[in-house]
Amino acid sequence: MAAVTAPAAGTASAAAEGRRDRRSRRNRTRWIGVAFVAPAALYLLVFQLVPVLYGVALSLTEYSPLSRGAPRPVGLANYAALLDDPEFGQALLVTGRYVLMVLPLTVAIALGLALLANRPFRGVGAFRSALYVPHIVSLTVVSMVWLWMYSPDGLFNEWLTGLGLPEQRWLLQEDSALAAASAMRVWKALGSNMVLLLAGLQGIPRELYEAASMDGAGAWNRFRYVTLPGLRPMLTYVVAMDIVYLAQGFAEIYVLTQGGPLGSTTTVNYLIYTEAFQYNSFGSASAMAFVLFALIVSFSGLAVRGISGRKS
């Protein structure tokens, strides 16, 4: 290990030594960076990237896992078939709409809750935990409760009837099914978003608020000029994470609507699952997956750039 020598200013040789020093420090930094990253990176390269590359290869073939033969290479045929597959086109639109319906709402509500729960008071831990509950209850289990709440005799219609309003067919109508599924997802995503934003809020230095207060900034201005900029890195992460996960929405759709009515809730990942495990067509399922992948990466990349500004 190279010990850091104090710069002995005054002589040319010492200055040169100092430069060399800094340079070797940078080298050391670089290697130490690699060492920090290596365990996680190697693991991911092997257990995450290899399966992905395998998927890329499969997307250029026709392959059923049940088949005894090797995958049959078909070039870009699977991708070409997607181009004029109206079902896939509609699934892309549905997925996009789903992300747009859930993302802003869940981030806004989570931010509000995080701000409320950021203040220390006796029992705040209980509130935080309670708000986190949706994220940890088994999705399948809780979907059954939502399914019932949305059913003709369910809780929501009970409330509507109580208010003297007409009953709704929440999950059974083309124009409301996706919104109904989104509502459940907003609920489910609240906890994780809130926890992240809470962690972000905790990182904002209090003296910034002090300074702002001394300058006479009101609550709104403190939020606008201290909280939001300070929260930016975490907000970036939250939005990117939501895009990545929401765009792969599947389980809630599977339980609530099976993609219906009239395909109005068939997301791309729902198609992929069906194609892969119901129809055993791994080639076309993989092709769909990589189109989805490209879109997720570009959109979350755009979002990251948009929110984080100078940082990318």
Binding site: L45, V50, A57
Partner: peptide
């Protein structure tokens, strides 16, 4: 790295 990746892929395939 490349070798490791390639090897793993070939093995899998």
């Amino acid at each position: 790295l490349g070798g490791a990746l390639g090897g793993a892929l070939t093995g899998l395939s």
